[in-house]
């Protein structure tokens, strides 16, 4: 419990920001604080949060994955096309597996061919999008009458939607993994000091495969949820998801340099962006202000954080 509070305290700044912005939006747009709207906000936050949680592990290990958007759309399309054969539950599981396999390939390229994660996942992004285009022939896939699939995005209990449960469930799971499993500690060790980790006998290749498989699986889940919202899947789905996912993680307080991760921060980062987007919507601000806000938030948050070590960092190691 004490550790939990410490963790919570570390990300307190974003908690305060979330609360303040929530209150301001509530004052400006009374509809913001209604239950339906809040659930809507949280659902949208969950979509990015799920893949963001996977990305948190990758960034904690000192890597990141630019292929998540492509993987999300690929898994959505594969899963949709499997529904007539396997039925809904199995095809959802198949989608997750497909995502994990794509992730595993990323991990293998990085560990076995020694291509930097940036380039490996960048190439995979192009390749996987291309495969998805070939697979769908560039057309939309629909699931007529398969409303069962809506379970992924629909309401589950008490009007709370499935993605929220997924996001919270995965956050709890990853929080546990990070704190109480050797896999989790080894992720942090690799991110903190890679050569120390491997000299201590940490099987860095295995850990990498695990991390990227997980990122792939979370990306696939996000992709299928997005597809299920409109019961349509295509190869253009989730473009730019990779950058949003990284933004959410950074905003949440996980350092890009690795070795440290905050699962709660990522959830809150996603919530913050979703709240602002929703609030701007309610205030009739055109939708295209949203991207600007995300960017400004990210830079603002980091600029504030940087003020502490301003002098030293700007002198010597200001760059990634």
């Amino acid at each position: 419990m004490k550790k939990f509070l410490v963790e919570f305290w570390k990300s307190y700044s974003i908690v305060i920001v979330v609360i303040v912005i929530g209150l301001v939006l509530g004052l400006l747009a009374p509809r913001f604080l209604t239950k339906d709207n809040l659930i809507n906000v949280m659902t949208n936050a969950s979509l990015v949060a799920i893949v963001g949680l996977g990305m948190t592990l990758a960034i904690a290990s000192g890597n990141f994955d630019l292929s998540v958007g492509a993987t999300a759309s690929f898994a959505g399309c594969i899963s949709f096309s499997l529904v007539p054969i396997l039925g809904v539950p199995l095809s959802i599981i198949a989608g997750v597996i497909v995502g994990a396999v794509v992730g595993l390939i990323n991990g293998l390229i990085i560990s076995e061919l020694r291509v930097p994660a940036f380039i490996a996942t960048l190439s995979m992004m192009t390749i996987v999008r291309g495969f998805t285009l070939i697979f769908t022939n560039g057309r939309d896939l629909y699931l007529f009458g398969q409303t069962e699939y809506k379970i992924l995005s629909g309401q589950l209990i008490l009007g709370i939607s499935t993605p929220i449960f997924f996001a919270i469930g995965i956050a709890l799971l990853f929080g546990f993994v990070k704190k109480y499993t050797r896999f989790g500690r080894h992720i942090l060790a690799m991110g903190g000091n890679l050569s120390a980790a491997s000299r201590s006998g940490v099987r860095t290749s295995f850990v990498l495969w695990g991390i990227f498989s997980i990122v792939g699986a979370t990306a696939a889940l996000t992709g299928m949820i997005i597809s299920s919202q409109v019961l349509t899947a295509n190869a253009r789905l989730a473009t730019g998801l990779e950058l949003s996912a990284i933004a959410v993680v950074i905003l949440g307080g996980t350092a890009l340099s690795g070795g440290q991760a905050t699962v709660i921060g990522t959830l809150l980062g996603a919530l913050l962006i979703s709240m602002i987007n929703n609030g701007l919507n309610l205030l009739n601000v055109p939708i295209f202000y949203q991207e600007l806000t995300v960017g400004a938030l990210m830079l603002g948050a980091l600029a504030v954080k940087m003020q502490k070590g301003f002098k030293i960092s700007s002198l010597l190691r200001s760059r990634s």
Binding site: R185, L188, A189, G192, N193, S195, G259
Partner: peptide, 19 residues
């Protein structure tokens, strides 16, 4: 040269991979 992971605790660094 130092083979410690700065972000982890002393105990963890001592028992890394033998937790």
């Amino acid at each position: 040269e130092f083979n410690l992971v700065p972000q982890l605790s002393v105990a963890e660094n001592i028992f890394i991979n033998r937790e």
